[in-house]
């Protein structure tokens, strides 16, 4: 069952074409990761999917009654707005006290209920953002660079938690990340984006794809710990590509 689908989606921001002809769909229970260099339109695509931006062309189709849990890249809380962790979890809808307690228990933050959001550390803040997104029992969990600012063990723990959440809730996960190696090995499907979808498929397939390597270079052969072998022969570019590749890819690793 398709939770969400974009049909020939185009996005124009301030006169610039940011996305063109994007077709993607997400099924229940799968983990999909979008990778792409800076300015490739990843965040724009996510914002179009949650409905914050109206498509310039094409359409975004949501399954009826679709519940989205959204974890933003960052969240600025104005210092004039007092907000405890418990109160934050009750937005946009209030929940019974025992649900809130259980959510913080699961997030590993049982003692922070009455703390102000502004006083949390980066890692705690990120876990609270995730806990809030899960309060609604979403069908689709969307994470935008959710591990930014976390150290390696912190982000590894974060992705383990995502995997648990997928198991327990059965929700689909759509995420954007710079951390190619970690995020790709945790995904069912990877979409390589650079204004349009360059290539997509299982992580090990994408990691070997010419289009992917054209963007991220060979410096990321560790993209999958399982697939370490290096292809040292040259692909015939025109034979492998089914679409035009006339735009300029930056030829360095994004890391």
């Amino acid at each position: 069952m398709r939770l969400i689908e974009t049909r020939d989606l185009s996005m124009r921001l301030g006169g610039d074409m940011v996305l063109e002809g994007v077709n993607l769909s997400i099924e229940r229970g799968e983990i999909v990761t979008i990778v792409g260099p800076n300015g490739s339109g990843k965040s724009t695509l996510l914002r179009a999917i949650i409905g914050a931006l109206a498509p310039s062309g094409g359409a975004v189709i949501r399954a009826p009654g679709l519940r989205i849990g959204y974890v933003p890249q960052k969240l600025h809380i104005d210092p004039t707005l007092p907000l405890t962790v418990t109160r934050f979890l009750g937005l946009p809808r209030r929940h019974p006290a025992e649900d809130l307690r259980a959510a913080l228990e699961q997030a590993g933050l049982p003692d922070l209920r009455d703390h102000q959001m502004a006083d949390l550390s980066g890692g705690q803040f990120q876990r609270v953002l995730l806990a809030r997104a899960l309060m609604e029992k979403p069908d689709l969990l969307i994470l935008d660079e959710a591990t930014q600012g976390l150290d390696q063990p912190g982000s590894a723990a974060f992705y383990r938690r995502i995997e648990e959440v997928r198991q327990s809730l059965g929700c689909a996960v759509l995420m954007v990340s710079h951390e190619l190696h970690v995020v790709m090995s945790a995904s069912d499907r990877v979409i390589c984006l650079n204004g349009h979808i360059c290539c997509e498929g299982r992580p090990e397939v994408v990691a070997q794809a010419e289009e992917y390597r054209a963007i991220f270079g060979r410096g990321t052969q560790g993209a999958l710990a399982l697939y370490r072998h290096e292809h040292n022969h040259d692909h015939d570019h025109s034979a492998d590509c089914t679409h035009d590749h006339d735009h300029d890819h930056p030829h360095e690793a994004a890391e």
Binding site: R47, G51, L75, L91, P92, R93
Partner: peptide, 15 residues
């Protein structure tokens, strides 16, 4: 309150 906190969180929550 949700819209004040973040317009994106509001959109994702159907507001």
């Amino acid at each position: 309150l949700t819209a004040t906190l973040s317009p994106d969180l509001a959109y994702a929550g159907g507001i």
